[in-house]
Design a protein around this nucleic acid. Structure first.
Length: 416
RNA sequence: GCGGACGUAGCUCAGCUGGUAGAGCGCCAGGUUGUGGUCUUGGAUGUCGCGGGUUCGAGCCCCGUCGUUCGCCCCA
C-alpha cells in the first residue's frame, strides 16, 4: 500500500457528528441574523496582502507571524484571510456600498492563521460573523451584541458563556490612557513578567489581559480607561450599557478586555466560557469606526463580531438528530423495479429513504438496522404478485402488508 | 517560536525488572436459504509512527525525527 497522506497540520475533516454540529451552528446563526435583518455576503478566501497588513496593526501577531501569504504566479502578494472584518470592509468599498448605508452583513467561512494548533484552535478554522456598518449610535452596539447573545441562546449555550464588556474610548481617550499606562508600567517594570516587559514597547494594552500571576497585582493598580474618557467617549459608553439593559443582555464590565486587533475603538466585548481550556473566547468583537476609511472609503462608523464555529460546536451538548430513514429491501431481481418505485414515492413524500445494493435478506435487514432506519419496506415476490409489500416498524417489530402505492402516505402519517 | 505528555489492529486501550503482540468494540462467516436489533460459534486484521544505537534478543532502554495533544505567546 502507498503511504497514506494525512491532513495538513492544523486542519481537519468534518465527518458525521462533527459536520452536523458545525452545520447546526452556521444554520442557526444565519437564521437568527435573518431575524435581525442581516443579509449574507461571501467574499473570497484570499485577498491582496495589504487588505490585512494595513488594517490589523503592523505589530499584531496576526500580521507579523500568522498570515498565510504567498506570491502568486503574477508576483502579487496574496494572503489567505486571517479574519473576516477587513475583507468585508474591502468588499463594501469595492462595491460602492458606502453610498447605501447602513449595511447589515452576515458571513460564514474559513479563516487561516499559521499558529501552533491546540484545543479549539486550528490553522484553518471557521467563523460566523456579523457587521453593522453605518450607524454610530450606541444603540447599534447594543443591538449587535444582542444578536450575538440570541445566537448563543438559540444554540442552547447562552448559559455556558459570560459577556465581558469594556470600552477602549475614542482615539483621543485611548491615546491619553495609553500614555498613562506606559508611564505606570515603566515605573514597575521590574515586577512584570518577561513577556509583559516586551509588550510594554510593542502593545502595552495587552499587559492588561496577561495570564501571568506576577502581573495580576500590578495590573489591578494600573490606570483605568475611566479616568481618560472624553465627554463623547463617556456618552457612548453609557449609551451602550443602557442599550444592553433595554435589550435584556446581561454583562460584566472587565477593564482587561482590550482585543488583539488594532482597529477597535469604543466598545470591545467577548462572550467567554471556562469549558474550552485556554481558548475561552467564543464570540467577540467591537466597534471599528476607522477601518472603512483605512480601506480607502469615506470615514464610516461600524460595529461587528466574529464567532469561532469550532469552539461553538464544541459547546453544543449534541447535534440535532437526523430523521430516521426508511430502508427499502428488494428480494431479488424481480422486485428491483418495484423497489425503485417505492423509493421514489417515499422521497416525494419528504421521507429519507435508502436501499441496499447487495446481499441476502438477512444482510439487508442488518444494514437497515445499522443505518438507524425507522422502517423497512420488504418487497417479496409473493406479495408483489398481489401489488403488496411488507412494511415493518423496526423499533417494535410490528409488520403490516400494504399496497405499494399506499406505503409512503402510511409511513408519513405514522411518523408524527 | 518555547515547554510538558503521548504515538501498539478500523476505534478505545492493555502489554510485568527487555524474551520477536493481546482485549473490548467494530468487521466477515455460520447457527437461522423470506426478516434486523438479543444470544451463540468461528474467522481476518498489525513494517508496535519513522530512522539509527545498545543488546544474544527491543513494543519496552538511548539518540534523532515526524505526528498528535495540552499549555505559553496570540486569538475565534
Amino acid at each position: 500500500m502507498a503511504e497514506a497522506p494525512q491532513p495538513v497540520r492544523g486542519t481537519r475533516d468534518l465527518i458525521g457528528e462533527d459536520q452536523r454540529r458545525f452545520a447546526h451552528v452556521v444554520d442557526t446563526a444565519r437564521a437568527v441574523c435573518g431575524l435581525y435583518g442581516f443579509d449574507e455576503w461571501q467574499t473570497p478566501v484570499f485577498e491582496e496582502t495589504r487588505v490585512f497588513s494595513r488594517t490589523l496593526g503592523e505589530t499584531s501577531d496576526v500580521v507579523t507571524k500568522e498570515m498565510y501569504s504567498f506570491a502568486d504566479r503574477g508576483g502579487d502578494s496574496i494572503t489567505l484571510r486571517p479574519e473576516g472584518t477587513a475583507a468585508i470592509c474591502r468588499a463594501l468599498v469595492s462595491n460602492g456600498l458606502t453610498q447605501s448605508l447602513p449595511q447589515k452583513i452576515f458571513y460564514a467561512g474559513p479563516m487561516f492563521r499559521y499558529e501552533r494548533p491546540q484545543k479549539g484552535r486550528y490553522r484553518q478554522f471557521h467563523q460566523i460573523g456579523a457587521e453593522l456598518i453605518g450607524p454610530a449610535e450606541p444603540l447599534a452596539d447594543a443591538e449587535v451584541i444582542a444578536l450575538g447573545r440570541d445566537i448563543l441562546a438559540a444554540l442552547g449555550i447562552a448559559d455556558a458563556t459570560v459577556l465581558e464588556l469594556n470600552t477602549l474610548g475614542d482615539l483621543e481617550s485611548r491615546g491619553a490612557w495609553r500614555e498613562a499606562l506606559i508611564g505606570y508600567f515603566r515605573e514597575v517594570a521590574e515586577g512584570l513578567s518577561e513577556e509583559s516587559r516586551a509588550r510594554l514597547e510593542r502593545n502595552p494594552l495587552r499587559i492588561l489581559d496577561s495570564k501571568a500571576a506576577s502581573d495580576q497585582a500590578l495590573v489591578a493598580n494600573a490606570p483605568r480607561i475611566d479616568g481618560y474618557l472624553t465627554a463623547t467617549a463617556q456618552a457612548h459608553w453609557d449609551g451602550v450599557r443602557r442599550g444592553l439593559d433595554q435589550f435584556g443582555v446581561a454583562y460584566r464590565v472587565n477593564p482587561g478586555i482590550v482585543r488583539g486587533l488594532d482597529y477597535y475603538s469604543h466598545t470591545a466585548f467577548e462572550f467567554v466560557t471556562t469549558s474550552l481550556g485556554a481558548q475561552g473566547t467564543v464570540l467577540a468583537g467591537g466597534r471599528y469606526d476607522g477601518l472603512v476609511a483605512e480601506m480607502g472609503g469615506p470615514p464610516t462608523p461600524a460595529i461587528g463580531w466574529a464567532g469561532g464555529i469550532e469552539r461553538l460546536a464544541m459547546l453544543l451538548s449534541s447535534a440535532p438528530a437526523q430523521p430516521a430513514p426508511v430502508a427499502v429491501v428488494p428480494m431479488g431481481e424481480a422486485s428491483q423495479a418495484a423497489a425503485i418505485g417505492v423509493l421514489q414515492s417515499l422521497r416525494a413524500a419528504g421521507l429519507r429513504a435508502e436501499q441496499s445494493w447487495r446481499g441476502n435478506l438477512k444482510r439487508r435487514m442488518e444494514r437497515a438496522n445499522r443505518i438507524g432506519a425507522g422502517w423497512a419496506v420488504i418487497l417479496g415476490e409473493d406479495e408483489l404478485s398481489r401489488g403488496m409489500a411488507q412494511v415493518k416498524r423496526l423499533a417494535t417489530g410490528e409488520q403490516a402488508e400494504l399496497a405499494l402505492d399506499r406505503i409512503a402516505a402510511y409511513i408519513a402519517a405514522q411518523d408524527h
